[in-house]
């Protein structure tokens, strides 16, 4: 059965930790890191990568364009 797997890459230095991507994700993939970037923001990361479908919701809600999305079909 075909399954869609996705992944995101966060430009952590540009991320401002607004958390809009967290709520935008339908599969609860994204969390905010304990660590902060050089500006002091907790940045987004994949806390639950297996659930990512590469739907790009997180990337298009992100005001700072910090998220790149990858997607593959697996069987």
């Amino acid at each position: 059965m075909a399954k869609v797997r996705g992944a995101i890459v966060v430009d952590t230095e540009r991320c401002k930790g607004c958390e809009l991507c967290v709520g935008a994700c339908p599969t609860d993939v994204i969390g905010m890191a304990e660590e902060v970037n050089s500006k002091g923001y907790h940045y987004a990361y994949m806390k639950n990568p297996e659930a990512c479908t590469g739907c790009v919701n997180c990337a298009i809600i992100c005001p700072d364009g910090v998220i790149s999305v990858y997607r593959v079909k697996t069987t």
Binding site: G54, V56, G65, V66, V69, Y70, R71, V72
Partner: peptide
Amino acid sequence: QIIQPENMVYTR
């Protein structure tokens, strides 16, 4: 394996 240029569906 997923994060490869050919699999990119969205970037700035």
